[in-house]
């Protein structure tokens, strides 16, 4: 092939015939997606951004009427739509409360399933079932039936405990318990991701720790958790994304009804969905900053501090 004539085929800067053919074929394979992402993601994003900053009218195509103030749509979302800030705040708070539960719960289940137990595949089957059937309308029907909560948790004791707390904290916690099953139902994929991760932890690590006299409890904190850190990050991001895009999410239903209602219109809905997108992006960023591997940075910071200290001593 073309590679024969080239002196150093591993030189990355060198443009060879073979490399060009790789480029061409790579692009050929991903071409459908590139076309799709340009039309349905990039163009759509730009378009909806334009919607949100103007007042659009439909007559023989779309006319963008400028607004007196560029941010009018955004302002009116907060001023007029009383439901929106409340629903958005509830969504954010609910997410923050649900995520640790989902992560901790699925990690515990995965740890138990990873051990030697009987009927492992039966348990796996049960825990994975909600991934298949848990969708918006089904959830709605089940919630309406009142089966979204654990029957053993008496509602009265909970309200008694919560009555001491201010309303804005008590309400989300109450919601949390009243939909505990639904939250647990959202953990199917997370359990499997953790399981796959646990199976990749080298058993030699545990053996070495055992020889050093570490108990199971210690090796969980010192080996399992650090190794699973990237999996936890992945699961946290996955949880946010699925909860944020799930159809049973109130805020999405609100955006949908507003956008396609005759009276309020697209530009209004576009502003709303951009606010929502921004909130989700911020949550994702926070999750990422909180859970990423920061040991390197910490070490760097420490060494920097020590070096500075040393300089100060010298001075």
């Amino acid at each position: 092939m073309a590679g024969k004539k080239v002196k150093n085929p591993h030189d990355k800067r060198r443009i060879t015939k073979r490399r060009v053919s790789e480029w061409v074929h790579g692009y050929l394979f991903i071409l459908p997606w590139i076309v799709g992402v340009c039309i349905f993601f990039v163009y759509a994003m730009v378009q909806s951004l334009r919607f949100s900053f103007s007042n659009i009218v439909f007559s023989n195509g779309i006319t963008f009427n400028p607004l007196p103030n560029a941010w009018d749509n955004y302002a009116s979302v907060f001023m007029k739509e009383i439901n929106f800030p409340v629903t958005l705040a509830n969504f954010g708070l609910g997410l923050v409360l649900q995520m640790p539960i989902i992560i901790a719960f699925s990690l515990i289940i995965a740890l138990m399933l990873n051990g030697k137990i009987h009927a492992k595949s039966l348990f796996r089957m049960i825990f994975f079932l909600p991934v298949i059937i848990a969708t918006g309308p089904v959830m709605q029907q089940l919630t309406a039936q009142g089966v979204s909560t654990v029957p053993m948790v008496s509602a009265n004791t909970l309200t008694n405990v919560l009555s001491g707390l201010p309303e804005f904290i008590a309400a989300p916690i109450n919601d949390l318990f009243s939909s505990l099953i639904l939250i647990l139902w959202n953990s199917g994929i997370q359990i499997l991701i953790f399981l796959a991760g646990l199976q990749k932890v080298p058993s030699t690590l545990y053996e070495a720790a055992k020889i050093d006299g570490a108990s199971g409890w210690e090796s969980f904190w010192k080996i399992t958790l650090p190794v699973m850190r990237s999996m936890i990050l992945l699961n946290a991001i996955y949880t946010v994304v699925t909860l944020a895009t799930g159809g049973d999410n109130e805020i999405i239903q609100l955006i949908y009804t507003v956008s396609y209602a005759a009276t309020k219109g697209y530009s209004y809905g576009a502003a709303m969905s951009w606010i929502y997108t921004a909130v989700v992006a911020v949550i994702l960023l926070l999750v990422f900053l909180l859970l990423r591997e920061k040991s390197d940075k910490h070490v760097k910071y420490e060494t920097k501090r020590i070096v500075q200290k040393g300089r100060r001593w010298q001075a």
Binding site: I34, V42, V241, Y266, Y276, V280, A281
Partner: peptide
């Protein structure tokens, strides 16, 4: 392109669904 791929997964589709519908 990879970044765009991840981004289109992370961001909720509500912002894009309307222009696509149009």
């Amino acid at each position: 392109w990879m970044g765009l791929l991840i981004l289109s997964f992370l961001l909720p589709s509500q912002a894009t669904s309307m222009p696509n519908y149009l």
